[in-house]
Computed example of a mutant assay.
Amino acid sequence: MTSLRHKPDTARDGYLDAARECILDVGWRRTTLTEVARRAGVSRMTIYRTWPDMPTLLGDLMTREWAGVVTAEVAAGADADPVGRIVSGIVGTTAALRRNELFVRIVELDPELILPYLFSRRGRSQDLILGLTAEAVEQGQRAGAIRRGNPVAIARALLLAVHGFVLSVHTMVDDRVTAEELDAELATLITRTLQP
């Protein structure tokens, strides 16, 4: 079985773009590999040779989509101090995911697709986030800007804390509290968690 993580190419990106369009139009449950092939302008067998089923294709699509969000947000805070870089990356990624049209569509129509990543296992995107965060924590520790502790455990604790800000922040927003205020609280939470 071929996977996005092994052989990225422009044709594959085109197929993933077609799958993304399908999911945005009709949702995950109504998207088929046949429809992805039709939208991509290729035969069904071309898609089937690349992905044996929709869950495999969705895994690659989500990895590409979320990795793009994370990479952009991490780059945006690259000039900050060690703690500021992590805060900027996490808070920016959290807000960007909540605005991402594919993420929003999945949460609205097919939220069960996200449950395995909350209750059963980590996904490739989560591992990417954890790796980047642990590396940034370790660098900050070496510079004396971040408290001591296992960088991997710190990264995982931060990711666990952030899940609610990504998935549930809308339940806490009303006429008394805005999403921006909650994001500011998240920034404070991360900053105080990391400071020596």
Rank of each mutant, 00 (worst) to 15 (best):
S3A: 15
S3Y: 08
D9F: 02
R12E: 10
G14D: 14
D17N: 13
D17L: 09
A18P: 02
A18V: 04
A19M: 10
E21K: 14
E21F: 06
D25P: 07
D25T: 12
R29C: 07
T32E: 06
L33E: 04
V36F: 02
R39T: 09
A40S: 13
G41I: 08
V42Q: 06
M45A: 15
I47S: 07
T50K: 15
T50V: 14
W51H: 14
W51K: 15
P52D: 15
M54T: 15
M54D: 09
L57P: 07
D60P: 09
M62E: 09
T63A: 13
T63V: 07
R64E: 07
A67Q: 14
V69S: 04
V69Y: 01
E73F: 02
G77Q: 05
A80W: 00
A80K: 06
V87T: 02
S88Y: 01
V91Y: 01
T93E: 02
T94I: 00
T94K: 02
A96Y: 00
I106D: 01
I106L: 14
D110A: 11
L113R: 12
P116V: 04
R121L: 12
R122Y: 02
R124T: 05
G131N: 09
A134V: 00
A136H: 00
A136Q: 01
V137K: 01
V137N: 01
A143I: 03
A143M: 09
N150L: 05
I154L: 07
L158T: 03
F165L: 13
T171Q: 12
M172Q: 13
D174V: 03
D175K: 09
D175Y: 02
L182D: 05
R192E: 12
L194Q: 05
Q195G: 12
